[in-house]
Design a protein around this nucleic acid. Sequence first.
DNA 1: TATAATTGTGTCGCAATTACACAATTTTGC
DNA 2: GCAAAATTGTGTAATTGCGACACAATTATA
Lengths: 234, 234
Amino acid sequence: MPYSHTHRVLVALDCIIFGFDGEGLNLLLIKRNFEPESGKWSLMGGFLNDGESLEEAAHRILYDLTGLDNNYLEQFQTFGAIGRDPVERTISVAYYSLVNIEDQDVNAIRSHNASWISLTKKPRLIFDHDLMVQEALKRLRTKAALNPIGFELLPEKFTIPQLQKLYEAIYDTRLDRRNFSRKILSTRLLVGTGEKDMSSQTKKGQLYTLDAHEYARQQKGNYSFMPELIMADF
Amino acid sequence: MPYSHTHRVLVALDCIIFGFDGEGLNLLLIKRNFEPESGKWSLMGGFLNDGESLEEAAHRILYDLTGLDNNYLEQFQTFGAIGRDPVERTISVAYYSLVNIEDQDVNAIRSHNASWISLTKKPRLIFDHDLMVQEALKRLRTKAALNPIGFELLPEKFTIPQLQKLYEAIYDTRLDRRNFSRKILSTRLLVGTGEKDMSSQTKKGQLYTLDAHEYARQQKGNYSFMPELIMADF
DNA sequence: TATAATTGTGTCGCAATTACACAATTTTGC
DNA sequence: GCAAAATTGTGTAATTGCGACACAATTATA
């Protein structure tokens, strides 16, 4: 026998998808060609289906758009203000995701009318999506200071200066090269490949990869990655 | 016109209510005398009503049980596993609250068949409420290391050793009196009242209150309260 | 009234972070 | 092709912050 309480609502999921292009943080946004708010920009979202957990639904939506699974995905807040969706009472469980911008499935993205857009040039989004992005960034900042999750935004092989640029982008700050390098190497998370970066522009630094074992360990354990970056306010 | 998507679900809210009795953390739990799972222990919860935001609903539920408003209340996670509620598909938005255990409304609590129970003696709870408590404690630990929210669990006037016992309870650890005192006083959050603690047992330490202005500032701002307590894993 | 426990304040040493210098390599501009 | 500018890698000194510990004052205990 179901509960006698009868107020049932639509449950949506919205994904704030972060990418890093070597310079700044980007968001994967959709230019809607469907109602409501057709023609405007929004986050990628969808509705919770029957027989599907929140986690599963978020993964499904992310896979739909990027063709990628196994991306970093974390629930961070549920939005339920009255009138946040003008069509019908809907609450939205918001997730943020960190993806390697090079791995994207161009066709999947194009078919959804989506684009990578620099966070600094973000257009106004529909509903309460601007608020969601703001809160996702806060959470990302806190999380990335406590756990080594930044690597999810980089290719498998990367240089230390690339990694530094990423953290400078996340925290909108400048870091000292030498101290950053020493700090990162002291975590023992990186393994040098001996190779040099042969990519287009910058033919310099040594390429590193993650030490998978250390990475898994430090993801889970009680640990503080770069406490000096903590901005609290989360 | 409503969305054609038809899968609407019940939205519940559950509150993990923390209190501090001078020794350890306590939870305000309900011994259910209603179905389902009558006779078993659970968190205080309820359903989202029409025309009510998540925040409002959580406050309503908390007020119902404690007779208190203006308590510290923060959403921390939404639980949506299949079958988490055996009666009907329900997702639950979980909040944790910090209340001053001395301010409680005894009648309201009794009428709900609720009791304060030490976290160390927590019985098994219904549904996924054990998981909720576990996650709430994780979040409390991270949050309390980053922001000065611990005071919400204490009376208006308190001694530094009381405050220390609280942090020792939250982090299940022992702290050095002298270092703790120095650290706390350096935050400029406390204002000495000159009075001494004249309460029953312990007739000693000086009573302090919060500097309301500093407290409000450090709640909001980018700040790291006691980074050495961070346990990450959140 | 003596003893034990609690509170308040101070000092020292170590570790971590910050600030800054220099050499090697690569790109850029002519 | 060569000099200048920029980037990378590594080192070192000064400062700061935290942990460990000593001691005096006050209050409870017996």
